[in-house]
Write a protein that binds this DNA or RNA. Structure first.
Lengths: 292, 292
DNA sequence: ACATTTACCTGACTACAGTCAGATAATTAT
DNA sequence: ATAATTATCTGACTGTAGTCAGGTAAATGT
């Protein structure tokens, strides 16, 4: 199939060009593994367990790498406040200098791709790279139930509320809206789904059982860079499947006219507009869909 | 600068996603270095020196890898006909099976990216990948003088003549055209420039001194996937620089109306249309440009 | 209070990727 | 004929990346 060939060609071209650049620019003097660590520790420092999680590395290996970086005077570790088992890695001033240097090299690597191109080609390349990046992310999306109180879930909800605040003419105040706490989205009363791409949260959606047999879709949000790539559709599909599984007969939701993409998504999925079923201050449209 | 950030973001996203895929799909059982070799030897076999050149590997290292593959019964080597120093590597039937398996895995890796996406997203991804691939190639282009008789130069010229054959209404027969041999493009009488991207020829152009003080631009060709990305412009710039350096006062060229991109390029670069200065059967337009 | 889990560490080990210094035989240049 | 070059090979070596099996101390569950 022609699509597959293009993807394979892309993989080869990119691993050669980008891979070579990586070795050329970042590999100088310092092993790549160490550079990765310095980069990930960053100027703010980081808990070692978080470091392990992000880079998906063996705990012994990370430990050894940190010892090596300590030996070079780039890093020091200190116990985290609160839990004395946890340790934090921090860059020393020399480490910080190395971090800046890595950033400069990353910039140079990027520039070495852009520099030979003319202005219009640069623009095309940058646009196409953004498109590929977002679609690769979209193709990696995994949607799973998540405790509504978890840090990742809370982060998504903050993004969602901020979006509402920006979009709504009069802003958005969670206090004024119909209250819905983590309990409402916790089984068996409801469920909270989180979408992750490359491990990072990029979207969410929740189902809340309001009246027996009736469920309500809430908190459907997708990171702006991934909008229009089918992530919202997937979350909605899974929420509906969940609703069917728990025997709900009807799904309801409300939305504001400023959220055009959401409204289009609901209409496309067979939600019909109905008279208001609540008196929340924010929604302009109310929808429902009968499940069979 | 925003462009640089996008390129860096792309690099990170792609190395993670594509890099992980590579390890997951190709790394099974066989070291990546060996897999690369099997892949590069391919169904047709290959001279070992060519293998070294393409993968840019140490000769001892390649030798060792080949011994290992021989030990596994995947490869055998035999002297090349003609030069007894050169050896050819060929896949045995077991090696061929492994090669097919690698291809299947590459396909699966590509599919694992495409599969989670909807049809329109796939289309967008494939298009953006092609765009990125071509622009990355374009940004890697290096243009250097090359003996007009070399294999790479001859390959480009074949591509060029094939293009003429396709574009011209009446086809193209090199025998009918004004003769120009490798000598005409060899210093000091002329020069032949070759554009390579990732080591592979992707374009060419030649300068031929016809009358004292007058040069002629000929054989300007760019691979179709890289057209419109500034490669032709660069070749032309270098040919003009070369002409100036050797003291030419006037540059001439002729072209056929079917080669619209070329004509646009010449006009953009200050070539003015003039009456025919030769009676070749193929050109429809004649141009010249005074050098200062 | 005691067992279990969590976070981190050390030591011992492996595989992979690659480099470098010759050695040998065939070919080409002078 | 002889020297220089080319293509390949072998042996000895290095550095990087990573795994695995324990071990210690702090925190948590019961």
């Amino acid at each position: 199939m022609h699509e597959i060939d293009q993807v394979r060609g892309f993989n080869r071209a990119v691993t050669r060009r980008i891979g070579l650049l990586r070795d050329k620019f970042l590999g100088r003097g310092r092993p790549f593994g160490e550079a990765r660590l310095v980069y990930e520790i960053g100027s703010a420092g980081i808990e070692i367990r978080e470091l392990r999680r992000r880079l998906d590395l063996d705990s012994g290996y990370v430990s050894r790498l940190l010892r090596s970086l300590e030996g070079q005077g780039l890093v020091d570790t200190l116990p985290a406040s609160g839990d004395a088992r946890v340790r934090c890695a921090r860059l020393t001033s020399r480490g910080l200098a190395e971090y800046e240097e890595l950033n400069r090299r990353s910039d140079s690597a990027a520039l070495s791709i852009l520099a030979p191109l003319g202005a219009s080609q640069r623009e095309r390349l940058v646009a196409a790279m953004a498109e590929v990046e977002n679609l690769l992310l979209a193709s990696d999306v995994v949607i799973k139930p998540e405790p509504a109180g978890s840090a990742a879930a809370q982060w998504c909800l903050r993004q969602y509320f901020e979006l509402l605040g920006r979009r709504f003419e009069a802003g958005y105040d969670p206090g004024q809206a119909a209250p819905a706490g983590a309990d409402d989205f916790t089984p068996p009363r409801g469920i909270f789904l989180l979408a992750r791409a490359l491990g990072n949260p990029v979207g969410c959606g929740a189902l809340k059982r309001s009246v027996p047999d009736i469920g309500e879709i809430k908190r459907l949000w997708v990171a702006s860079s991934l909008r229009g790539l089918g992530v919202g559709q997937k979350i909605l599909d899974l929420l509906e499947a969940e609703a069917r599984k728990s025997g709900l007969k009807l799904l309801r939701l409300d939305t504001n006219k400023a959220l055009r993409e959401a409204e289009a998504l609901y209409r496309k999925n067979g939600y019909r507009e109905v008279p208001p079923f609540n008196d929340d201050p924010y929604p302009d449209h109310w929808f429902e869909k009968r499940l069979d």
